[in-house]
Design a protein around this nucleic acid. Structure first.
Length: 753
DNA sequence: ATTCGCAAAGTTTTT
DNA sequence: CTTTGCGAAT
């Protein structure tokens, strides 16, 4: 046994690290060093001669996987342990065993909006009267079914359940459309793999043997499908180790079932259980507040959280007059901490229940000139312009992807309208063709105007020209898409100011593609790139190293820690969310969510609420969250700021005890920048300096006009490579057509237009 | 076929 | 308040 791996660990931690064969359940409280234990255990397995390739570590988020990868690399550099999210793992397995799920290996992963669009087509196709049900409702019913491994043909409505009856009709059609498009939704990835494992003993045995040591992180957040997958691969080699904390289960709405962790000991009677209850993160006061709150949950395994850390300062609960005051008050405090030199921006986080609340906090931080990064709900890859452009690649990779086809056929507008598309759809449906194949036969479709047929044929030609480059680096391929479609030109001369942002986002996409190319040298990585774009989440872009205040939802905060934490809007209807109030189980989940938020704090924690809050465009009085009354008042310091409320209805807060500090020196408002799904302010923004640029290969951009001494003016069609290898394909429209240059050695000059 | 404008609706959390 | 959807006008 290597001494280093156990150094500085508690007995319980050592016990978990040294465990090798057989099932293990690690019940890990917040801040108990779980990631450390898991990574050390993997290193220990490797030291005991377990082959890296037979270890599979499944996490819930990419962020957690990255963190684990980094820490493992320090212990065991370069070991090819398979480490990633459930979804990514399933994506890989599904490529390998696509046929068993009735798919081709180049299948497309639909995100939520794609699958909703498909569902709408399904609803239309079965011609139901679904006026009383939103597609979202049907979507979540289908999602629930898939998470519980109920296939379309198994789905039966419970008698008298009207929604269920509709789902029973739409679900099969929806699934048929997905299959016809050679596509899967997020839930399918899990369901297909779980069913393959269930129905194919050979595959199951093979994967069981391939991955002899399986670790599942955040086990409390797994759903039935994920459970089935982990379980099926741990029969011949039952070395399944799961880590989790029932008190941090916050994904019940996504099908996660606490049963998986609460009943793990029943599934594996010989399980080795390790409890990590010592907290290394928070002060005693913070931990006691958290513990008092969570002890109000009934459905849980009681835990004895304790810490040897300092007592710490009291947890603060502040009531502000308005949401505006709240945000300004928090920003003022943050500014004070930073100016006094006690804290750096990166030490501080603001959490809230829903993304919609971020705006006010953002504005206040901006007004104070405090740098921040917002982990936001609307993801970069969900943006219209990004999806538009990527859809060309999706279609190139999977020509049967009807959704992608519908998206690109008339974007940018090329005169192919509703009636033409309807005819294409009809033609495709009657012959069982994909829409793209139907489009190839446009000339033969009866009733299609000649003009329309020509437009469609031109589109097909354009698309085929793009496809020529599918094996090229991604940046170059994207360049060809942009050039052929003139997507940027469409935005350039637009009046809409948002379109300038869109152009910037497209540049950002090109940058992402370039970075991908750097990581994946060689040809033909389109499919990997597309998979990556489908499976990244907003929280993955959170950058722990940049010195900024973090703004995020409590869900996104899971697994992170900050010296100073503010939790805003602790009000009834928000936390707990109004849609959870009716149901006890959901209320408990809301309580756990707040518990997660509280336990992120290491030294200082402030909860706050506003008496009045503008929300949904309306201003109204708020009610304090019922959870606040469950907190131990002797650990806390309560304070009321502002006096817009005359009466003392809430009755539970002391009078104001001190004033808000005033800060004179306010920097001018700064505008956040949008980068890969995160709005952030750079140091340059703060200093008011423009970013400096090297007058080099970086001077050339997609779509730029350049001059060549011999060929004259041309336009950059595509770019690829880096540094000295950076190449540009230029179209000299007036002379020789397309040429490719190595920029460093070329006489090309940018032309300012 | 596209664009514009207005009305209505709907607001959680994310792979 | 924002986004989405629909209908009418060009």
């Amino acid at each position: 046994m290597d001494y280093d791996l156990l150094k500085g660990l508690t007995d319980a931690q050592c016990e978990a690290v040294e465990h090798i064969d057989g099932p293990m359940l690690i019940l890990a409280g917040p801040g108990s060093g779980k990631t450390r234990v898991v990574t050390h255990r993997i290193a220990n397995l490797l030291q005991h001669g377990v082959r890296a390739r037979s270890i599979l570590a499944l996490t819930f988020t990419n962020k957690a996987a990255d963190e684990m990868r980094q820490r493992l690399d320090r212990l065991a550099p370069g070991e090819p342990v398979w480490l990633g999210t459930f979804h990514r793992f399933c994506a890989r397995m599904l490529r390998e065993y696509a046929a068993l799920a009735g798919l081709q290996q180049n299948y497309t992963i639909y995100d939520t909006s794609d699958s909703l669009a498909t569902l709408k087509r399904a609803i239309e196709a079965v011609e139901l009267d679904a006026t009383h049900y939103t597609p979202q409702q049907l979507a979540s019913a289908i999602s629930w079914a898939k998470n519980n491994l109920i296939t379309p043909d198994q789905y039966e409505a419970r008698p008298g359940n009207v929604t269920g009856a509709i789902v029973a009709k739409v679900y099969p059609k929806y699934q048929e459309l997905l299959k016809h498009s050679n596509a899967v939704d997020f839930d399918d990835m899990l369901m297909h793999v779980a069913l393959i494992l269930r129905d194919s003993p050979e595959v199951r045995a093979e994967l069981d043997a391939r991955y002899r040591y399986i670790l599942v992180d955040e086990y409390q957040d797994t759903n039935l499908a994920q459970y089935a997958i982990a379980r099926a691969m741990s029969i011949d080699y039952p070395n399944l180790a799961v880590t989790g904390d029932p008190d941090q289960s916050i994904y019940g709405w996504r099908g996660a079932t606490l049963n998986n962790i609460l009943e793990f000991e029943r599934d594996y009677p010989e399980v080795h259980v390790v409890r990590l209850e010592q907290n290394w993160r928070s002060t005693k006061k913070i931990l006691r507040v958290a513990d008092a709150l969570i002890s109000h949950n009934r459905r849980r395994k009681a835990k004895d959280l304790f810490t040897d850390n300092d007592e710490g300062v009291p947890v603060r609960l502040i009531t502000y007059a308005s949401h505006h005051d709240e945000a300004e008050g928090i920003a003022a405090q943050i500014l004070g901490m930073i100016q006094s030199g006690k804290r750096q921006p990166k030490d501080i986080a603001i959490f809230y229940r829903i993304n919609a609340l971020s705006r006010t906090y953002e504005a206040a931080l901006r007004d104070e000139g405090i740098p921040y990064q917002l982990v936001r709900g609307v993801e970069f890859y969900q943006r219209k312009e990004i999806k538009d452009v990527l859809s060309y690649l999706l279609l190139a990779n999977n020509p049967r992807d009807d959704n992608a086809f519908l998206r690109v056929i008339n974007t940018p507008a090329r005169g192919i309208g509703r009636s033409t598309i309807d005819k294409l759809v009809e033609h495709a449906t009657s012959r069982g063709l994909s829409l793209l194949d139907a489009a190839r036969e446009a000339g033969m479709i009866a009733g299609l105007a000649k003009k329309s047929a020509v437009s469609v044929a031109k589109f097909v030609g354009l698309f085929d020209r793009i496809c020529v480059h599918v094996l090229r680096p991604l940046e170059e391929l994207l360049g060809h898409v942009l050039s052929e479609t003139e997507y940027q030109d469409m935005l350039k001369d637009s009046e809409d100011p948002d379109d300038q942002d869109r152009l910037a986002n497209i540049e950002e996409l090109l940058t992402a593609a370039r970075e991908f190319d750097e990581r994946h040298p060689g040809d033909g990585h389109l499919e990997e790139f597309l998979e990556q774009t489908s499976l990244v989440a907003d929280t993955d872009d959170w950058d722990s190293s940049s010195d900024r205040v973090t703004l995020m939802t409590m869900h996104a905060a899971k697994g992170l820690e900050f010296p100073v934490v503010f939790i805003g809007a602790v009000e009834k209807g928000l936390i707990p969310h109004e849609r959870s109030e009716k149901d006890d189980a959901q209320m408990e989940e809301e309580r756990r969510l707040l518990f997660v938020g509280i336990t992120r704090a290491k030294e200082r924690l402030q909860l706050s609420l506003a008496k009045r809050r503008d929300f949904r465009g309306r201003s109204g009085y708020t009610i304090p969250s019922p959870f606040l009354f469950e907190l131990p008042r002797d650990e806390m310091e309560m304070e009321e700021r502002g006096d817009l409320w005359q009466s003392d209805d809430s009755g539970d807060f002391d009078e104001p005890s001190f004033d808000i500090d005033e800060f004179e020196d306010r920097t001018p408002k700064q505008i956040g920048k949008s980068i890969a799904g995160i709005r952030l302010m750079t140091a340059a923004d703060l200093a008011g300096e423009p970013a400096t640029e090297d007058a080099n290969a970086d001077d050339f951009h997609q779509g730029m006009i350049v001059r060549h001494p011999e060929y004259g003016l041309g336009k950059i069609v595509a770019l690829s490579g880096t540094f000295r290898n950076r190449k540009a394909t230029v179209d000299f429209f007036a002379s020789v057509g397309q040429k490719t240059f190595v920029l460093a050695a070329s006489p090309l000059k940018p032309v300012r237009s």
